[in-house]
């Protein structure tokens, strides 16, 4: 079977096959089947001359899953399966879960390791010392950053065409959002647990400005992201707060802040824009979904 796969010219039908096999994996839980298929993929990817890539960062995970052939994906970071923060968490379950440390990467010998620019510094250095190619992705702070990163990953996995498709998809969402722009330049504060505020240099801020909203972080005295006190928020009183969770449940004391009575009084559900965390935590293909969601939320609260 392995031999026969290699023998056939793969590029033309690989995509269709991948989809079929992905569906097959979803249906069967057989370890042997999975292992066998991974072997098959690996062989196929090598045959196609495309690099095999491992990701140790939740944001590069998303880019990789969107742009690479399944066969190219050696493994993903542990957080790739986190349903709250990882956009493609369901799909991530079909790939190997890496420890995020250097050891399994050295064993698996991917052609490229993609990583964040700030996290896992020691791991990245160790891998580089071992002669491994490590591609580092900075945190995307603007829409341009995002497009650039999509294209970069597309080049890296050998599918620049798919990258262009994703960029076009994002552009289309931006156009849609600009058409549905808010009636007034409301001041919106993007607020996370413990009072973390996304500043001007964040993707969230970029999303707000596309829809004609302004980031209230600036008037809280900070253009970059950081913690804001509850009192400062209440005193500044932005028009809306943008949060990731609309439930009335606090999983820990950090998220309890968002349900503090002081905030609940000023920001009932009609004053809260809710965009799930997995749409905003990274800059990547999910941003078109994030924009659509933001437009929908604006409509909900009557903005």
């Amino acid at each position: 079977m392995v031999g026969s796969v290699i023998a056939m010219p793969p590029v033309a039908w690989s995509h269709r096959l991948c989809k079929a096999i992905r569906a097959c994996i979803r249906r069967s839980n057989g370890v042997f089947v999975v292992a066998f298929l991974i072997l098959t993929f690996a062989a196929q990817a090598q045959a196609a001359g495309l690099p095999r890539v491992a990701s140790i960062n939740v944001c590069t995970d998303q880019l990789l899953m969107t742009l690479a052939d399944p066969a190219q994906i050696v493994g993903l970071s542990p957080y790739a399966r986190d349903a709250v923060r990882s956009w493609a968490a369901a799909e991530a379950r079909t790939y190997r879960r890496l420890s995020g440390e250097a050891e399994d990467l050295l064993m698996l010998k991917p052609d490229v390791v993609v990583a964040g620019l700030y996290m896992k510094r020691a791991t990245r250095q160790l891998l580089k010392r071992q002669g491994m190619r490590v591609a580092e992705f900075d945190i995307a702070r603007s829409i341009d950053d995002v497009k650039e990163q999509i294209r970069r990953m597309g080049d890296l996995v050998g599918h620049p065409d798919r990258a262009e498709t994703q960029v076009a998809r994002l552009d289309a969402a931006i156009v849609r959002a600009k058409q549905a722009v808010a009636r007034k330049p409301y001041r919106v504060l993007a607020l996370s647990r413990r009072g973390w505020v996304s500043g001007d240099d964040s993707i969230t801020s970029a999303l707000l400005s596309i829809t004609g909203l302004s980031n209230a972080a600036a008037s809280l005295g900070s253009h970059s992201s950081g913690f804001a006190t509850l009192e400062a928020i209440v005193a500044d009183r932005p028009d809306f707060i943008l949060i990731s969770d609309g439930r009335d449940v606090a999983d820990d004391e950090g998220s309890a802040l968002l349900l503090h009575p002081a905030l609940e009084k000023l920001y009932p559900p009609s004053r809260r824009l809710i965009i799930p965390e997995d749409l905003t935590v990274c800059g990547g293909p999910m941003l078109s979904d994030a924009l659509d969601r933001l437009v929908a939320e604006l409509k909900r609260v009557g903005g």
Partner: peptide, 11 residues
């Protein structure tokens, strides 16, 4: 209202 919230609900 803001002052009330700060004093009564936060402090």
């Amino acid at each position: 209202e803001v002052q009330r919230i700060i004093v009564q609900d936060i402090r």
